[in-house]
């Protein structure tokens, strides 16, 4: 190691630009930027979709049934992505469908974070028997395939948006608990925690103000990726008829209806899937970028 002349140190340590770290990391990782743009488009569509949807998504019209996308020979320029078996505009339905995906993704994951972080913090911080018990619970949940548990739960509770959010939230918390517990164990023995305990702070105070801030980065990354998982799970359950029910428009329901017309109208099952895949892709790219930007320890490869 060469020694650096002390005088030049401040020069080197000064940040080269005034741009915040996340922006610089975004510029290095252009793929993350693509993810961010896709996520922004989906969010805007979910919020303001009705303003720019070309047609009423629920309007039935016998005369406009099975029109293929605009670029094919029999296409109609008024219906960019074609129409379905009831003459409804596919593009407008896709735009309205974004709303359910966003709501289920955000609310479902919020529940998972709340449950998972609470269990992970408690388990890791208190330790001992409580930790043992909670860890076994986590192990058990890990053994049951997520989608099967969700399918059975939502099937028995009865389908619907509200039940779906609750079920996906309560079945998806395991990863959060596991990761938070691990991080808590790593942080717990550090000196500043001992210091906080020495000055007589309560366990809850230490957990919330000293331990939790250290695990937020991991939670944000996991939560982002989990939103993609939940959106795909929602569409899967809706596809199976166990999720959101018509007439509410969701991509999963559109796909399951389109599946019955595969031989004649390929576009009906294709575009909702493209919408789901692109949304999930955007979220995953954003999540991978966040992982690199927020927490170098989680970086892969």
């Amino acid at each position: 190691m060469k020694t650096v002349p002390a005088a030049s140190l401040p020069e080197i340590q000064r940040p080269r630009s005034a741009r915040p770290a996340w922006l610089r990391s975004l510029m290095r990782n252009s793929v993350g930027g693509v993810g961010l743009v896709i996520v922004a488009i989906v969010l805007i569509t979910a919020l303001a979709g009705p303003l720019f949807a070309p047609h009423d998504p629920a309007k039935l019209n016998v005369k406009t049934r099975y029109i293929p996308p605009a670029w094919s020979a029999e296409g109609d320029s008024r219906y960019l992505l074609g129409t379905d078996q009831l003459g409804r505009d596919v593009l407008s339905r896709l735009i309205y469908g974004a709303r359910v995906s966003v709501i289920v993704g955000l609310l479902g994951v919020s529940i998972s974070v709340l449950v998972g972080v609470t269990i992970g913090l408690t388990s890791g911080y208190i330790g001992g028997r409580v930790d043992n018990l909670l860890s076994r619970l986590v192990d058990t949940f890990m053994a049951i395939p997520f989608i099967i548990l969700a399918l059975a739960a939502v099937g028995f509770l009865g389908p619907g948006l509200f039940n779906l959010i609750i079920v996906l939230g309560l079945t998806g918390w395991v990863t959060f608990a596991r990761v938070v517990r691990g991080e808590v164990l790593a942080v717990k023995s550090m000196e500043y925690i001992t210091a906080a305990r020495t000055i007589g702070q309560s366990s809850w105070r230490i957990m919330l103000f000293h331990v939790l801030p250290n695990v937020t980065a991991s939670i944000i990354v996991l939560a982002t990726l989990q939103i993609a998982t939940v959106i795909i799970a929602e569409s899967s359950l809706s596809f199976l008829g166990m999720g959101v029910q018509p007439p509410t428009i969701t991509w999963g329901v559109m796909l399951s209806e389109g599946r019955n017309h595969l031989a004649t109208s390929w576009w009906l099952a294709t575009f909702p899937g493209v919408a789901i895949s692109l949304t999930a892709l955007g979220i995953i790219l954003m999540g991978d970028w966040l992982r690199d930007a927020l927490d170098p320890r989680l970086r892969q490869g």
């Binding site: 993609a228 795909i232 569409s235 899967s236 596809f239 796909l255 599946r259 595969l262 099952a269 294709t270 909702p272 899937g273 789901i276 895949s277 692109l278 949304t279 999930a280 892709l281 995953i284």
Partner: peptide, 12 residues
């Protein structure tokens, strides 16, 4: 591949 729902891939 991670982003595609696998039932949709199946349908495609």
């Amino acid at each position: 591949g991670r982003a595609m729902p696998n039932y949709w891939l199946g349908i495609m």
